[in-house]
Design a protein around this nucleic acid. Structure first.
Length: 589
DNA sequence: TTCCCAACGTA
DNA sequence: CGTACGTTGGGAAT
């Protein structure tokens, strides 16, 4: 084992910039690198310090999973600029449900995806290195007889020493090269040859989104705890002192409804009991959903009280004091709401977040407040889905409409109807209408925008027939597997696919924009500077030092222009962002 | 204890 | 008009 004292002499620095460089951290042991043409093991007690020095040369970091490799780097203050996330790209290319290296490796080599390992009870956080060494296979290397990654390596044997990390980095680079090759085969040969192909660019932005997801989890959403407490007091009342007090307060809330109800007290949280109660006062309904109750609120004090109760109960249970205590951490500069972020979940390919980050009721949003000397800059993409439809389908007429600030106005003119009807018709077309509300306008859609409608219809047919599809950016929609295990009627998969090609492509555009914004914000104040703190499907919230607000607005606008230049190249579709600033989320509108 | 459903918040 | 996801509580299945 050659000891390496000067790592800065051994990497091909002059050619690193922008080039794939696989990195594997072996905490406390060292770091392994692999690039096209070589690999290296560097023993060091502080691997992140070595990575920080290499980062100055701005390679494209290749890692198995951002959560694993980028997290310790970010915690050590290293902000990687660009990356290639093997898990994220595997999801894009092969729709793997699991992003762990064993699944990614198997998918890359056309092998069956191994089942997830059954985790033993986390008494001591998984197997120790000793236990891993004990297992037979550990001396056999990372690849087993069937060509699969061996269990000890998947479980972390690569962290045993820098040479193991080096081998693991070499395998990462191999997978990266397989992914790059397959992405190239997806490219549209008719596309503009001077720019990188769309699937490759999508892979890069999906990778960046995976990194951003780690940053979002680490940074947290600034939330002013006293403001949140005040809002909760207004909506659900005082903070319970103990479980008995909580029970008493709950009873008070319930009684406000039950006083309007005849007979014995029922459990308002039980839909069946509520339905029976409503039946006893002459309201026979198929279910007790609020939109179904709404029409009766004016005539029934019971229904009115119940709807009010539901609203408060939602906040009390999901976004109440226990949520505040569990999910919001008090910090030096301000509270932080933290959840787990995923860069691309489910059929939609959207980002997801836990801890209520994606479904915070609007009335609580004024508690999302910037730190002192910081300001929020909020931006959202207007009418993103119909614009995406115009771009991905290549419908010239719809693209012409999408060049307007409000694209429903020209659509209404083309359909010879009013704007609200035009909007309903477009949405019904994209998501597969079931009721005949927009019938006439829909037929006019077929006449006015045949290319867009054909695109949607072909996606719907693929869904019904169980044929795999890819989104505009190249993300696999594994309809064959889904429909093979079908539990729902065929029409459901038709609607599902019709929606997935639009929602999915919109998610890809959004992430590409977010990745560009993230990169652009790097220049604004360094580590304690501007930071994306929330991604909400078509909306970005940025926490910015107040002196950089104008610059941040500029970054948002130039990033959108730069992103749509390649994403919607040649389509003639315009994408518009509405941008506002304010000290809290509610006021930044 | 585990799983599904109803309900509802967001986009 | 419809889709997606996360969270909660009840209630049935295990």
């Amino acid at each position: 084992m050659a000891r390496v004292d000067d790592p800065l002499g051994l990497l091909p620095y002059e050619t690193l910039r922008g080039q794939p460089l696989a990195v594997v951290l072996a905490p406390g042991q060292g770091v392994g690198f692999a690039w096209e043409g070589g690999s290296l093991a560097i023993p060091t007690a502080d691997p992140t310090a070595v990575v920080a020095r290499v980062a100055d040369h701005d390679p494209r970091w290749v890692w198995w999973l951002a959560r694993e490799t980028a997290l310790p780097l970010l915690e050590a203050g290293v902000r990687p600029r660009t990356c290639w996330d093997l898990g994220a790209v595997a999801r894009l290319l092969w729709a793997v449900r699991r992003e762990e290296p064993d699944a990614v490796w198997a998918a890359a080599h056309g092998l069956p995806i191994p089942a997830p390992e059954v985790r033993r009870p986390a008494m001591h956080g998984g197997p120790s290195l000793f236990e891993l060494l004990d297992q037979d296979e550990s001396n056999e290397g990372p690849i087993g007889p069937a060509g699969m990654l061996t269990r000890p390596w998947v479980n972390g044997f690569w962290a045993a020493d820098p040479h193991a990390a080096q081998q693991w980095a070499e395998l990462a680079l191999q997978v990266q090269q397989i992914q790059a090759t397959q992405l190239a085969t997806l490219a549209d040969p008719r596309a503009e040859p001077r720019q990188p192909p769309l699937p490759l660019l999508t892979a890069l932005s999906e990778s960046a989104a995976a990194l951003l997801a780690v940053e979002l989890g680490l940074y947290g959403l600034p939330l002013h705890i006293p403001t949140a407490e005040g809002l909760l007091r207004d909506i659900v009342g005082e903070r319970p002192r103990d479980p008995a007090h909580e029970q008493a307060l709950r009873q008070v809330r319930d009684d406000a409804v039950l006083q309007h109800a005849p007979g014995d007290a029922i459990d308002l949280r039980s839909p069946a009991q509520v339905r029976a109660l409503l039946g006893s006062v002459g309201l026979t309904l198929p279910d007790t959903r609020s939109w179904r109750l709404e029409p009766h609120a004016a005539t029934s004090p019971l229904v009115a009280a119940l709807l009010t109760w539901r609203k408060a109960e939602r906040v009390a249970t999901t976004y109440g004091y226990s949520w505040l205590d569990r999910c919001v951490e008090a910090g030096e500069t301000g509270g932080r709401l933290r959840g787990e972020w995923r860069a691309s979940d489910g059929a939609g390919g959207r980002m997801t977040a836990s801890a209520g980050l994606h479904n915070l009721p609007t009335e609580l949003r004024s508690a999302v407040r910037a730190d002192p000397d910081f300001t929020f800059v909020r931006a959202d993409l207007g009418q993103i889905e119909p614009r995406v439809l115009a771009a991905v389908s290549g419908d010239q007429a719809l693209a012409a409409a999408a060049r307007e600030e409000d694209m429903y106005a020209p659509v209404a003119a083309a359909l010879r109807c009013d704007r609200p009807t035009a909007k309903v018709a477009v949405l019904a077309a994209m998501y597969g209408q079931t009721s005949g509300a927009a019938g006439a306008a829909l037929r006019d859609m077929d006449r006015a925008y045949p290319t867009a409608m054909a695109y949607l219809r072909s996606a719907e047919a693929a869904g019904r027939e169980g044929r795999d599809l890819r989104t505009y950016g190249g993300r696999l929609l594994p309809l064959q597997a889904v429909v093979a295990h079908a539990e729902l009627p065929q029409g459901a998969y038709g609607r599902f696919a019709r929606n997935a090609v639009i929602q999915g492509a919109a998610a890809e555009l959004f992430k590409a924009w977010a990745a560009t914004v993230r990169d652009g914000l790097h220049q604004l104040g360094g580590r304690s500077g501007a930071q994306i703190v929330l991604c909400l499907h078509d909306e970005l919230l940025i926490h910015v030092p107040s002196e950089h607000v104008d610059a941040a607005v500029e970054v948002l606008e130039t990033s959108l222009a730069a992103t749509t230049r390649w994403w919607a190249a040649g389509s003639g579709v315009r994408f518009v962002a509405e941008i506002a600033t304010g000290p809290d989320w509610a006021s930044a509108h």
